[in-house]
Design a protein around this nucleic acid. Structure first.
Lengths: 363, 363
DNA sequence: ATGAAAGCGCTAACAG
DNA sequence: CTGTTAGCGCTTTCAT
């Protein structure tokens, strides 16, 4: 790979000016066909690849959108049983964003956040894109504040504005609270259950907390007693922990709950396995529900009743908001979308497959 | 977003030269702590975000690796039952590449290929990265040839060099032939099956053809008769088609096969459902196997015997090869890796869970 | 440890 | 339709 050819080389070789070479790539129609072919031929012979950097510098835009998400990966989780499921979340957002970005002519730059410092990946991403999306709590607030002064940023998931310095950002989330509420009402009203055990997350997560609020509200409205805290909080919400949680809740003193309401599907799937080992039948002996609607949830036996998050659409919406800021409406009022979720009533709560949509939207 | 501040603004505001501002970001230690803080403070106040473009242009490198993959998405497949599974393939490569790229300090730029023309996404990607991976048959050969003269390119999957003009590219594939061979031998030798029906793909795909070759070789060596062609070739290898294939093979004249050997997991899963509907028991009445090792394969009932492709590792390897070219060994001999696959012997062939690894590697 | 100056390769007016 | 001419914002010697 010796010195890469530039517009000058191509221009010289095809006997035109650099401006014409540039035109051939930017607006082919503005160049006479014969000339264009000469240029293209020269480019091919030379192995010319236009420099995105030079282009971006001169045109002040990159044609790239970005996504920053947290680094989920356990350092050496190689076998990766849970791993597959664990990353589905960001995988789906990536898929949605890539698809939507492509429709709008953008490519997608992705990076999981690393540690801080002035030279971290987030800063790098920010400098190379026209706008980007951030999964909540991935990037330090202060840094995001600085960046968002220069580039459109949309916040994904999490609460509207954890920090007032960020309230000018567009924002997309899913109806966590409402979804969990609806699911819980279903258990309460349609199945007549009363003793529900909620299994949440140890760390503070806005999404998971919203789900728990939905659970509590449903219980309260149905006159069912609930503590201020989930029955259990697990550290990572993995499948293994779900199994563990099921064991704890079954083995504990007092009456066994009638239903385990898990804050995500992975735990619920783990619980299903643990209960099977114990010889307990779902849903006859005990009802189990999840949250997320990962593909696996439909495939386990019994199929898992859960709340389906439209993660792919989340990604698509993010791109739409970015594109909107990038084209014209740069100064529009910040938008906050809440994507509706679907309650999938499946076998693990004793239903045949049914699904209803819930939640509300702006825009 | 008025005029974005540049090094000049930051320099002026902090009373240093632009060179110092640059140093603060590139090599913080080469600047006195007090100076550095002044610069960083000014940057923060101004909302300074270094331009990746200007940086890349000046330093001749982007710190970004790329991936181009085919556009799988059916335009309006919204419900997306199969969609989830269909994209798992590229999703996993993305995951593997992102992870490995991050370890090496790179971000990842992804784009599904669009149509041609001098200004397509592939060209765009090529111009914005230090090197990139291409899923076989995503990019026109000629275009790839031109680009690969200027940037390291690694070819993923597919055969070594479909085109001799591309034989200087690094290449990573999985042991398709050997994996299918081992799986088939298992059916033949350990389960004593004799009448196997192979279900492949209508379109010509190097990977799928390699699998079929493995199947044939196994049969031949075991003295089992096989035609030159699969029993069936389906157009898309979706779940629905798998179900359809099962129906065809059951309903057909002549003896029903003892085993359905599918070229991928999705079809096998579909077949499982179709067979259940027909009241046929797997593996007692009929054995079913897949290929890929998607997460679903472990979760269906009965769990699917299959060949596990290490897609995440494929992505990781791709990054390793790129990084190698990018650091020193630019002129090294082209490498061709074949990643070993694992035969997962599960319930759908009558085994308890077992797994063996097969295939060979270079490097 | 810091500054000065020369590009990096391209786009974008503006002429012609 | 095509050429000329300025930068775009940063890194990078080379001095100091």
């Amino acid at each position: 790979m010796n010195a890469a050819p530039t517009v000058y080389d191509v221009a010289e070789r095809s006997g035109v000016s650099i401006a014409t070479v540039s035109r051939v790539y930017r607006s082919p129609d503005s160049v006479r066909a014969a000339t264009r072919e000469r240029v293209l031929a020269a480019a091919r012979e030379l192995g010319y690849v236009p420099s995105g950097n030079a282009r971006g510098l001169a045109s002040r835009s990159t044609g790239v959108l970005g996504l920053c998400f947290p680094d989920y990966s356990d350092p050496d989780t190689v076998g990766a049983e849970d791993d597959d499921a664990a990353m589905l979340y960001s995988d789906q957002i990536i898929r949605g964003m890539e698809r939507a970005a492509r429709r709008h002519g953008y490519a997608l730059l992705i990076a999981a956040s690393l540690e801080g410092g002035p030279e971290n990946l987030v800063a790098k991403v920010a400098g190379r894109v026209d706008g980007f999306a951030v999964l909540a709590r991935t990037v330090p607030t202060e840094e995001l504040e600085v960046i968002s002064r220069r580039r459109p940023v949309v916040m994904l998931a999490g609460p509207r504005a954890q920090d007032p310095s960020l309230d000018h950002l567009d924002h997309v989330e899913v109806a966590n609270e409402d979804g969990q509420y609806q699911l819980t009402r279903h258990l309460l009203d349609d199945h007549g259950l009363r003793r529900l055990a909620y299994v949440g997350l140890a760390d503070d997560s806005p999404d998971v907390e919203a789900r728990f609020r939905g659970f509590r509200r449903a219980c309260r409205e149905a006159g069912v007693e609930t503590g201020d805290e989930p029955a259990l909080r697990m550290p990572m919400m993995t499948q293994a922990e779900g199994a563990h949680a099921a064991d704890l809740l079954c083995g504990g003193a007092g009456e066994r709950p009638e239903a385990f309401v898990f804050a995500n599907d992975q735990m619920a799937v783990g619980a299903l396995q643990a209960l099977e080992r114990r010889g307990l039948r779902v849903p006859d002996d005990i009802v189990v529900t999840g949250f997320d609607g990962i593909p696996l949830s439909r495939l386990v036996r019994p199929a898992l009743t859960t709340v389906r998050q439209p993660m792919v659409r989340l990604g698509e919406k993010a791109v739409e908001l970015l594109v909107r800021r990038l084209t014209g409406e740069r100064e529009a009022e910040p938008v906050s979308l809440m994507l509706p979720v679907g309650v999938a009533r499946r076998a693990s709560c004793g239903c045949a497959d049914e699904e209803t949509t819930t939640g509300f939207t702006d825009l």
